[in-house]
Design a protein around this nucleic acid. Sequence first.
DNA 1: GTGCAAATTTGCACATTCTGCAAGAATGAA
DNA 2: TTCATTCTTGCAGAATGTGCAAATTTGCAC
Lengths: 215, 215
Amino acid sequence: MTKAAVELPLGLRERKRRATRRAIQQAVLDLSAEHGYERVTIEEISAAADVSPRTFFNYFASKEEAAVGDFPSLADLEAAAVFLSEGKKENLLSGLGRLFEAASDAFSDDRAASQRRRTLLRQHPALFAKRMAFLHLFEDELAGLVRQRLATDDHALEQDEDALTQRAHLVSLIGFAAMRYAYRRWIEKDDAVPLPTRIHEAFQQLDLTLASTRR
Amino acid sequence: MTKAAVELPLGLRERKRRATRRAIQQAVLDLSAEHGYERVTIEEISAAADVSPRTFFNYFASKEEAAVGDFPSLADLEAAAVFLSEGKKENLLSGLGRLFEAASDAFSDDRAASQRRRTLLRQHPALFAKRMAFLHLFEDELAGLVRQRLATDDHALEQDEDALTQRAHLVSLIGFAAMRYAYRRWIEKDDAVPLPTRIHEAFQQLDLTLASTRR
DNA sequence: GTGCAAATTTGCACATTCTGCAAGAATGAA
DNA sequence: TTCATTCTTGCAGAATGTGCAAATTTGCAC
């Protein structure tokens, strides 16, 4: 759940909904930390979150899904607008890097929970993989964004719809690669370096690497 | 399952094992095509494959796992050796491209099953995601390989263990991005263009794109 | 081919996960 | 307040997934 860039005053219904969702997610993290992820049952989770097991399934299809956490959408992220507006002058991949930094900030809004989830993901590669899979849902959205940016940057390319789409796709995949790299290092390293910093480093590395690989 | 580069004459035990595995995988594809993936139960699958449900679980942890299919390992791929041996003279990313082309041959060895799986994956994003997760297992293997190649290519880098590892990881992720791009286009397009060709195109595109992105 | 050890399959019991459905409670809008 | 909509809950029952021990099959040596 994003905090929503557009700060609508949200009705009671929606607020309760989110509270329930959070409560369940918290419960998974709490109980997992205490008894170990595999040993925690959905019944226990539901009890801890003060909902019926049936309600659990109204929110999540499985324990895993509750454990991996939510993801922000690029849509309600002002950084996306910034990325679009900065034209040719700025390097495309660096722009992507800044976009990701901003996005990562948005989804670690609850610092404590984020930290506990990180521990959980570290201990359970399956969960980590699932989280990665979720990350991939970004891709189409991202490719669309990159496509817009490319169109304004390069008017020659703008003519060829197909080439434009393809290149956008490829570029966003490369950006993603860097993002994945950063995320992974963040999970694996034990130091206190925050994710946005890791992302920044990753895109620097990317730049360096490309410089050395090509020619 | 790979055809195994080292063509051992496989005992009866192992042959039966593989046959069973295949039978189950086939059954999932068959039944899913006929009744729809979600409606197929493991009981039905087992029946179709002529094994007990318990045996199903001896081979796969879940229906999904049986559906996504196997993956080849870089280990028994001579192309990996080639990749290592070609030194600085050859472009690193192109080398990766050729490696992937060869690997893709190994895992689309059963063309028919591959096609049907492709259809299934297209209809079920969750399965697609899971397949991706499997793909990521490649990554470590690949990163290791790239690391070796980098070490021989660049003796300056060879000194700095950490930098070496990081760069290897990043480079392999970029190669991966291209691979994913190719795979996706292969999945989505309905033409008869084979995967290796798509991979080749993808790495060309990658080259082009990097040229334009970096100055 | 006989005998024996190791690997594989299977049935069974059992805990847990998930789904459909319909009744009931809470919320929002008129 | 009243009514429609949305959310929660319990229940019944199907399906998933695991441990265990008894059969069965295979590999190997004699």
